[in-house]
């Protein structure tokens, strides 16, 4: 069954761009990305949109659909009312390069700032032994497809360019949590660094990131809150605070 759809698509860049109306066919079972591709092939040969797998696995086709951060490949046309106009715009938290394509280099810069996995120095290939239950916590965060929808929706940076410098964003909080909970990771103080260097404290747990995550990772409950609690423990528990200072002094000596 084919029907005519009204769509409004962002064309151009941040400064000179505007919404353009199109009327286009949509077939039964299609997703928004299919319809965008039809617009490309029949009406706007140079319409820019990122996409790769078209299966919700690569996280490339992140856009905002009727104002909500979504993967275009996982948004069914059937989820809209018959006569609804579907508005597709680029991710708002990042500068627009052209049409629906944004400059997401912010995320790659932040990835570079997170200290990498540090295995035990004497770990030989094939010798690691870990229980399933112990790897599962980190595995949840490793499901992340880096669509950056959580980064886009996070109000700390969505309309606050000035916070970007000191705030890594939910994607990288789960990266830190993943490493912190990794049974083989030896680097200490990941949580403290999250607080002091990556802006964990700026998050006020409104859970917007969790809501938009296409992988249903419980970003706030399983990564951010546990890290915040532990940071607070160390910071405000006088015995643990003293303990951390003494240990640090021993390391210096």
């Amino acid at each position: 069954m084919t029907r005519k759809i009204k769509m409004r698509i962002w064309r151009g860049n941040s400064e000179t761009g505007s919404l353009q109306d199109v009327s286009v066919d949509a077939n039964e079972g299609e997703v928004v990305l299919d319809v965008i591709h039809r617009v490309q092939a029949t009406q706007m040969g140079d319409l820019a949109v990122r996409w790769n797998c078209k299966a919700g696995k690569c996280g490339s086709c992140s856009v905002e659909i009727n104002g909500k951060p979504r993967l275009a490949c996982m948004t069914q046309m059937a989820s809209f009312a018959e006569d609804e106009t579907i508005t597709v715009t680029p991710l708002r938290a990042f500068p627009v390069i052209k049409d629906l394509v944004t400059d997401v280099s912010f995320n790659y810069k932040k990835a570079m700032e997170i200290p990498s996995f540090e295995p035990p120095a004497d770990l030989k290939p094939g010798e690691a032994r870990m229980q399933q239950i112990d790897v599962e916590r980190s595995q949840e965060f490793r499901k992340c497809i880096e669509c950056f929808l959580c980064q886009d929706t996070c109000h700390v940076i969505r309309d606050h360019e000035e916070n970007k410098k000191s705030f890594a964003g939910p994607r990288f909080f789960i990266r830190i949590a993943e490493l912190d909970m990794h049974p083989l990771d030896m680097l200490r103080n990941r949580k403290q660094k999250a607080q002091e260097e990556h802006g964990l404290g700026m998050c006020n747990i409104t859970k917007c990131c969790t809501e938009v995550c296409p992988e249903h990772i419980r970003i706030t409950d399983n990564a951010i809150i546990p890290m915040k609690e532990r940071v607070v423990d160390v910071k405000y528990d006088p015995v643990r605070w003293l303990g951390s200072k003494i240990r640090r002094r021993e390391e210096v000596l």
């Binding site: 990498s116 996995f117 295995p119 770990l123 290939p125 094939g126 690691a128 032994r129 870990m130 229980q131 399933q132 790897v135 980190s138 595995q139 490793r142 490493l179 990794h182 083989l184 990771d185």
Partner: peptide, 24 residues
């Protein structure tokens, strides 16, 4: 190929485990 898989683990990969804690 076994060496290539084990090396990924040293780089941080987290494969599913057997009951003994090896890579399933």
């Amino acid at each position: 190929s076994p060496d290539r898989v084990w090396e990924l683990e040293v780089w941080g990969a987290l494969f599913d485990r057997t009951a003994e804690g090896k890579i399933s």
